[in-house]
């Protein structure tokens, strides 16, 4: 009995360690953003349909979604209808960071499929995407009124993600408007 005790205990320990390892292994298809809870990286980029560049600081004071997309990205087409729906809901503006794309193709895409974006900054060289830790389109970030990244979704936007992850985090509709003056 005694001579089996140590090997059995060692084996049990190994099982526990490996079980914890398997249980806590990061889900490799979705890597949690290193930027969650941090200030969204600021950027100034040229944008579609305007001479003036887009400055991300202009979004301060409003909650918004930053959706990373490209016409070369098949999943982006799959989520486009959902983005249009979000845009129609008027709950928050969507900024569409066009990642390593051609301006002409992007314009054509939005003409054909509809434009859910308030602004379309053009990240032609992919530098802004790297600053945001983007590793595959589509990715969608939720940014709060203080310019902090609250949530990131990797992959196509779906009604479930919109309901459970985004709407659930948004302040109630009245709170997204400027706070009324307190009655004296």
């Amino acid at each position: 009995m005694n001579r089996f005790l140590v090997p059995m205990a060692a084996f049990a320990l190994l099982v526990v360690v490996l079980a914890i390892g398997i249980d806590r292994a990061p889900q490799k298809s979705v890597i949690e953003s290193a930027l969650l809870g941090k200030a969204a990286p600021e950027f100034v980029l040229p944008q579609l349909g305007s001479e003036a560049p887009f400055d991300s600081r202009s979004m301060r004071g409003r909650w918004y979604l930053l959706n990373v997309w490209g016409t070369w990205c098949a999943e982006c087409r799959a989520e486009h209808e959902m983005l249009l729906e979000i845009s129609r809901s008027k709950r928050l503006p969507v900024v569409g960071l066009n990642w390593k794309d051609e301006d002409g193709l992007a314009t054509q895409w939005l003409q054909d499929l509809g434009n859910p974006y308030e602004h379309v900054p053009l990240d032609r060289e992919g530098r802004t995407a790297i600053d945001w830790g983007v590793y595959g389109a589509p990715e969608t970030f939720l940014i709060d009124a203080d310019g902090k990244i609250v949530y990131k979704h990797v992959g196509a936007m779906t009604p479930e993600v919109w309901q459970r992850q985004i709407l659930a985090r948004l302040p109630p509709p009245s709170a997204t408007l400027p706070a009324p003056e307190p009655a004296s």
Partner: peptide, 8 residues
């Protein structure tokens, strides 16, 4: 790199 993409 870690600031943007994490330890991974």
């Amino acid at each position: 790199m870690r600031e943007r993409y994490g330890d991974f």
